[in-house]
Amino acid sequence: MASKMEETYVHRKLEAHKPFSTKQFFLQWEWLLVLILIGVMVLNTLLSPYFLNVTSLRDATMIFLDKSFIVFPMAFIMIMREIDISVGSTVALSSVVMATAYNVLGMPMEVAVIICLLVGALCGLLNGLLITKFPELSAVIVTLATMILYRGIAYIILEDQASGNFPEWFGFFGWGYIFGVPFILIVFVIIAVVFGLLLHKTSFGRRVFAIGHNDVASKFSGVNVNRTKLIVYTLAGVMAALTAVFLASRMGSTRPNIANGYELDVIAMAALGGISTAGGKGRLIGTVIAIFIIGYLQYGLGLINIPSQTLMIIIGALLLFAVIVPKVKEMRR
């Protein structure tokens, strides 16, 4: 009886510090990704004598990092149990508007770049508005429609032509170095850190996770679900426009059909990085590793002239592996 009394009336103490568990630390998904990355590096080194070379490894990042900017906001979107497949078209539209503003309208390139970012933001905002105003429509359908729409507008503006002749300084985005480090790599690191902190260390990021797990409970807890979604979709548009700037810079010109299929690459990188499409789960560090896995895989297999179809098979298999392994772990529990 006494023990029963105790249980009812003595207030229990709760632990408020999370104990560090070495086992839990090493059981994290990201370690598996690190192993895969090492595997990719070893494989490439064995297959090609030209692969393991600091200069070429460094310069390879200039080729594959541009689309990675979009991976971060895409991770936010997927954590919220949404999707955006219009980002590739947003890249095309914003870059085409930029080139037109410079070449046809005669604006200074600096202004054209700002316009490019604005166009991206508008594309993202429109997606967000449609998705929050019409919650009964699925994000796949809404962004499928805008994907076709944005690409179509890009074709109307430029027809099926290229537009280039950018000023020389503009090439710095794609090909420049600062203290021997590619400019794009520096930008990538900054963006990754900013998004990582935003997701994991701020109340905004916490709300993104909350919405992904349970948007109804989030709403009842005073989270402004629609505003959060709007911000994240707009961020995705801005990052797509930033990709457009680096891509146009690297290629020296743009055309309406650039960045075709980027949306799928981006979603694949996020998924491989451990972002669950079921919502509420994932860490940005995983997506960073996944970006390098896919990037170096593409680069290395390109060196030994493996056809791109084979590459697709490998990436597809890797992705399947990545989404199945956590399920197997759950089933065994």
Partner: peptide, 27 residues
Amino acid sequence: QGLILPWGIGRNITLPTLESFTKGGWL
């Protein structure tokens, strides 16, 4: 409607009032 079941007790309790634990943007 009330709780985020896969979350811990603490995070659930503070969800409506995250601002009060935020200083200069940091949680």
